[in-house]
Every structure is written in C-alpha cells, then in structure tokens.
C-alpha cells in the first residue's frame, strides 16, 4: 500500500484538498483510505465517508495527536489494508507545532494556508521543515504580494521541499496532486519504520494529571525559566532537576 502523511495546523484546508484529490485519484482508478488523528473532535471521517472514501478517525483526548498517531500506526495501517485501498493517507492536525507525523520512507505532505501570518512557517516546525511537499491553500483570499512573500518564508524553512499552491474550494491543483500521490512509496509494513523527527519529550507530572501548582509537585522532564535575564525581553531556560 502507498503511504502518505498529511499534516498541517487546524482548519488550514487539509480535508478540503484531500477530498478533491481522492476524487481525482478515483477517476484515475486509484482507491484511497483516510485516517484522521485529532485531539478532541473531528467530523472529517464523516466528510470522507460521505464522499465514498473509507475513513476512520481517532481522538487523542488529552494526548498529543502526533504521539498518539505513532503509538497506533501499526493498527492504523492494518485497518487501511483491510479496506483494500491502494493508497493510505493519514491526516493529522499537529497541535503543538513541535511534533510531526512524517515517516522516513513515506510521502510527507504539509498543508499551510495563506492566512496564518508571516511568521507561521517558522512557528510550524518539523511538520513543515521535514515535508517533501508543502501545499499552500487559500491563495484566493490574499494579494499576490502576500502569496509571494509567504512562499519565500516557506522556502527559507524548507529548501528541499516542493512548494505548490492549491485551492481547497475550487480544487485547483488537486488533479496534479493526485498524480503525485499515485506515485507515493509502496510500504509493506510500518513496523520498524522511523519517524523523521523525534517527538519532544513531554513527560512531566502535569502529563500524569497533576493539577496543583508549585515546584514541589513537579517531577520528571521539567524546565525552569529565568525571567528577565540578560537582554531586554530575553528569558533564559534552565533545566530543572
């Protein structure tokens, strides 16, 4: 089965683009299955199902959806294989911007929209930096000048990726994107595949449901900030013990 990870901030247009791309793939005789990893709520699975695309969603609840994704990837892959699909796409809305679902040996897509502000490409982190293909949506809502500056910013963060403009509303570019997906790497099994980016360690007492404030309750991976350090507006981070 061909394997694709599709990551991007919430509401940037991932589902809109993928719906149209899957439709184009189907016309070309390639069937898709889609998995959505999200935090609290998603209607994406219904949207895909309504378009006749086998889909399922998994909610991470209090966990990072990307960590949750890594933990459940074997099961997810097995589900997609069970649908008989030729191409499996995994959509995640990485919330912390520090994680990335991208795998070595699978096609890695990142979607960003033109409305997120000029510093967004820098803030988005590894899901953009380590993508093979960056898709920019919502160009219809901004000026050409903004599109150009934004694209330049993306290029500065990832000089290896192919950058393409697509439109989730009109479907512009989705037929061509479908051709790219139909050439995504074939993967036999996900067992022993590697993530492209080590997920940040985030196990502290608050990860384990601590609610009380105070140093004495803080254990594990704790970082303490020294506020008002040298240089105006600078703060120093020191590792706690």
């Amino acid at each position: 089965m061909r394997l694709v990870t599709l990551a991007g901030p919430p509401a940037c247009g991932k589902t809109s683009v993928l719906l149209r791309t899957c439709a184009a793939l189907r016309e070309a005789g390639v069937s898709c299955a889609v998995l959505k990893f999200d935090c609290l709520l998603t209607r994406d699975a219904e949207a895909y199902a309504a378009a006749g695309i086998p889909a399922t969603a998994a909610l991470a609840g209090g966990l990072c959806p990307d960590h949750f994704f890594a933990t459940n990837l074997e099961e997810a892959f097995a589900w997609a294989q069970g649908t008989g699909a030729e191409c499996c796409v995994i959509e995640t809305a990485g919330l912390c911007n520090r994680c990335s679902p991208h795998l070595r040996g699978a096609l890695a897509l990142c979607v960003v929209d033109n409305l997120m502000g000029i510093d967004a490409p820098e803030k988005i982190g590894p899901m953009l930096r380590l993508a093979d293909l960056v898709l920019v949506t919502k160009g219809d809502l901004v000026s050409q000048a903004e599109r150009e500056v934004y694209r330049h910013r993306i290029r500065q963060m990832n000089n290896r990726a192919v950058i393409r403009h697509v439109n989730g509303l009109t479907g512009q570019g989705c037929r061509e994107l479908a051709a790219v997906l139909s050439r995504a790497p074939q993967v036999e099994t996900v067992t022993d595949m590697r993530l492209r980016f080590a997920m940040p360690a985030a196990v502290c007492s608050y990860c384990l449901s601590e609610t009380r404030i105070g140093s004495r309750y803080q254990k594990g991976n704790v970082k303490k900030v020294k506020f008002g350090g040298p240089g105006a507006g600078q703060t120093e981070v020191v590792d706690g013990d």
Partner: peptide, 25 residues
C-alpha cells in the same frame, strides 16, 4: 501536468474585488 502544478498560483497575479491584505504588518 507537472509544469501546470508548478505554475498554479504563480504564473498569474489576479486582482479581484474580494481580495484583501490579511497580514498584520
């Protein structure tokens, strides 16, 4: 198709009534 994909959103600058600046700069 590859060339077309590459040029999408780049070959043409368009000015329509519903376009606005969105950047906070």
């Amino acid at each position: 198709p590859d060339r077309r994909f590459e040029l999408q959103g780049r070959l043409v600058a368009q000015l329509t009534q519903n376009m606005n600046f969105v950047l906070d700069l």
